[in-house]
Design a protein around this nucleic acid. Structure first.
Length: 420
RNA sequence: CGGGGAGUAGCGCAGUGGUAGCGCACUCGCUUUGGGAGCGAGGGGUCGCAGGUUCAAAUCCUGUCUCCCCGACCA
């Protein structure tokens, strides 16, 4: 990705007003600031700025997945009906899965999830306990014909998902990997500046067991969480036996109900899919067993929406430094030839320091540039102008005061800020 | 799928039967330049779509599509 972009050339500038046909905070801000563009309900284009954020979120996830020892791969979204019939989910998911005939009349579908295909592939290539455990993940778009897409990037019909699948020879191995993934998920959310709670929830069409959800408390959420403020005990209200106002089963504090955005969900699948697809392995004693499986999902697009939902102010978005589309929003207020040269030297020095820069080089008033910088929400802003001889102004988006310093101090300051 | 709201210029809006306008944005010129500058001159429209009523429809009638919100639903 380009590390230096001129705002004058950027596709996707700010709008003066928020779009009329969005009322969720995340969609309003992301559309107004030029990150996304709606094509239809629940389907959005990521404009250059939005794609940079989405990719940054994916990178945070990739680093954690790779650290778990999982291998990245990529499955098709277009899938034949037959494989879904083996598990009975062609019918079970027919309300939510896009299913249609191709030119020859053959029934195909767009993937709402990938358990069927992954199990099919693993069946072909895994035969021995020596190949286990195995963990594979992909980041790909999923398609769900939601009865009601809503809340901008929170509930879409086409949306990015990171799905990880693990395969084990026994339950004990599954449990230990599952716990590692759970810890890894908490680390991902924390790197993204989100406080996520891991809570018990229903298993849906995946498993009869409970699953574990990761919820970020927010009024924009659609799930109701029974939550204990003192010990952080939490359950999805769909399975909770306790009620708001009642005593917490762990610490006897008083339970409250909060809304949460589900940013991740992990399932112990057991042998549900390997049984129906016939994916088995040979154990050390020569006996044959179905693979024991789990699947783990995170929605990168939904995370972008969630971050905006919980991190903004009246002026616009406030990106956490881990996913800011650029590291520096450089506001150029002077336009003299000498000043432009100074700006170019500064850009050059920033690039040498490994920093990414969005330069607002437009012929526009200072007010417009400041408003837009706040709207776009890049973590660090630098101002270069004639009124401050040899001084730059550095301001962190979520702090109120700016600091004056010379160019090399400013670069050092910003570099250290991101390194922390 | 039930209830509510909304579709008019790129964005936000006004326009209750006489052939479409405002602000912002855009283009050109001049002046401005530290928190959404000023003046002047321009360009941009199948009024969501279809049918109907009428001499005449953005406006009235019928149907339909789309978007937002609440609910139902939610791998």
């Amino acid at each position: 990705m380009k590390s230096f972009v001129r705002y004058s050339e950027l596709f996707g500038k700010t709008f003066r007003q928020p779009p009329k046909d969005e009322s969720s905070r995340n969609a309003q801000l992301l559309e107004q600031a030029g990150f996304i563009s709606k094509l239809m309900a629940g389907v959005y284009t990521y404009l250059p700025l939005g794609l940079r954020v989405l990719n940054a979120v994916k990178d945070v996830i990739r680093r954690e997945m790779d650290a778990l020892g999982a291998q990245e791969f990529y499955m098709p979204a277009l899938q034949p009906k037959e494989i879904w019939e083996k598990t009975g989910r062609w019918k079970d998911l027919s309300d939510i899965m896009y299913q249609f005939p191709d030119h020859s009349g053959r029934q195909v579908g767009l993937a709402a999830t990938h358990e069927e295909v992954i199990t099919h592939i693993v069946k072909q290539r895994i035969t021995s306990y020596k190949d286990l455990p195995l963990a594979l993940y992909q980041i790909q778009d999923k398609f769900r014909d939601e009865p009601r897409a809503k809340s901008g990037l929170i509930r879409g019909r086409e949306f990015s998902m990171k799905d990880l699948y693990s395969f084990h020879a026994d339950e004990k191995d599954l449990d230990s990997f599952y716990n590692r993934v759970a810890a890894s998920y908490l680390s991902i959310f924390s790197r993204l500046g989100l406080q996520a709670l891991m809570i018990e929830a229903a298993g849906g069409s995946f498993t009869k067991r409970f699953s574990d959800e990761f919820q970020v408390i927010s009024d924009a959420g659609e799930d109701r969480i029974i939550y204990c403020p003192s010990c952080h005990f939490a359950q999805n209200s769909e399975i909770a036996e306790q009620k708001a106002g009642g005593p917490c089963p762990k610490c006897h504090g008083s339970l409250s109900e909060k809304k949460g955005i589900e940013v991740g969900n992990i399932f112990k699948l057991g042998t549900k899919f390997s049984d129906s697809i016939g994916a088995t392995f040979t154990a050390s004693d020569g006996s044959t067993h179905p693979l024991i499986m789990a699947s783990y999902g995170i929605g990168p697009g939904r995370l972008v929406g969630t971050i905006v939902e919980v991190s903004n102010d009246a002026q616009g978005i406030i990106w956490p430094k881990s996913v800011t589309p650029f590291q520096i929003h450089l506001v150029q207020l002077s336009k003299g030839l000498e000043e432009k040269k100074k700006t170019e030297r500064l850009v050059h020095d920033c690039l040498n320091a490994g920093l990414t820069i969005l330069l607002d080089d437009r012929v526009a008033s200072a007010g417009v540039k400041f408003k837009d910088a706040d709207m776009v929400g890049i973590t660090a802003r630098m101002v270069i102008s004639t009124s401050n001889e040899n001084q730059l102004e550095v301001k962190i988006r979520n702090e109120s005061a700016s600091k004056k310093m010379n160019a090399s101090q400013a670069i050092e300051f910003v570099k250290n800020y991101y390194a922390e």
